[in-house]
Amino acid sequence: MSRKTLKENIELESRVIVIPGQKINQKARRIDENLFIENGEIYAERIGLLNVENNKVEIVPLKGKYLPKEGDVVLGVIKDIMPMTWVVDINSPYTALLPFSKTTSTRNESEKIITEKMFKVGDLIAAKVEIFKYGINPILTTLGAGLGKKRGGRLVVINPTKIPRVIGRKGSMISLIMKKTNCEVTVGKNGFILVNCNDANKELIVYEALKKIERESHIKGLTDRINTFLEEKMK
């Protein structure tokens, strides 16, 4: 067991699951947006794992919808085309918009290149959330490395609250999966994950591993279990 995994386990053991309205017997200077203060006491606002670190109390949610954050890289499906704009399903209560101007950096590109960059309904794209204010459709951009239309692979959808666990501390989980399976895995913050191995059996294994993370992220020893799972399946 690596030191990183050990640390992860110890942290998890100190966590408990809290439910909405539950009083948290902690004094802290900082709380996150999943907690609230009433008459000087801290209460949970969502179901999740309680995490107390230094002077901060936070809840790691176990479930919930994806709410866009500026700078997030998401995977989305083109669901409609409007004048100079694509409408993109990003698995969120708020449908995203991708303006034509956010797909190309130069104005004088040849027609051929522009056409190549045109997206059709049903296309899967990787994009970055550029602007988001509550209640207003988020604005995406595909300008940047690795962004744009995706070709090939298996799309897996998991609850977006579990994406941090899929990535792992400093990317440890996702690199474990990629290393053990030799697959390319593109993770969208919104819960869409694209798995590409050029091998359906492997893609099924990665799918199962991702679903296992989604189900068991709150149970300690996740990294070890995923490691064992992948080793057994890849035999």
Partner: peptide, 8 residues
């Protein structure tokens, strides 16, 4: 909604 992707 992932089902709507052509790629899938």
């Amino acid at each position: 909604s992932g089902i709507a992707a052509t790629l899938q």
